[in-house]
Amino acid sequence: DLTPEQQSLLHYIMDSYNRQCIPQYITRKLLQEDFSAEENFLLLTEMATSHVQVLVEFTKKLPGFQTLDHEDQIALLKGSAVEAMFLRSAEIFNRKMPHGHTDLLEERIRNSGMSDDYITPMFNFYKSLEELKMTQEEYSLLTAVVILTPDRQYIKDKESVEKLQEPLLEVLQKLCQVQHPENPQHFARLLGRLTELRTFNHHHAEMLMSWRVN
């Protein structure tokens, strides 16, 4: 079982995570029917920017984050933003959004001018996460774990980051045992998805470049 300290850490992370919301004026634009390729590009860019802003707000609240060196804070966020966004998108596609919105967003992404070589693996990844039947607690903790990854480029004080990540990993591991007793491999599978996320991170720059060129 989770200790009382772990329980309160979990509730705190969940609460901060649930406050992460893209403003409605942006999501409303998604539902407007007519859109040119250029408007589509601008909307997806605006959503991504807003995504980063709410991610930073969530990150600021992670226990201990603000005690880290300022440049290390930026390096952590730069290193994890793409991965955290993919996780968040997976959650939105798999659960959070009303059904019609998800279809529209998928259509817009597929018509965005990005190559299918990038889009197909992305939707496959969303599907592979869906099969894990992750709870919102797991999404929130996994996102925090992703952000507080010590071995990102340019981190000077890896040890301090490790110290912040460890308790979150412990809670996540226990939670997996409690919520998926039928599947003892659940925690290992979640960590496996993190490796996949890293691949997306590496391809993201090329993807944006090809998108812009198109």
């Binding site: 605006e46 930073v56 730069k78 933003a81």
Partner: peptide, 21 residues
């Protein structure tokens, strides 16, 4: 507009809490 900013700019501004500037 925000769409012209790079990732690092967005992060720095959001960390400082002055994104609207």
């Amino acid at each position: 507009p925000a769409s012209n900013l790079g990732l690092e700019d967005i992060i720095r501004k959001a960390l400082m809490g002055n994104f609207d500037d």
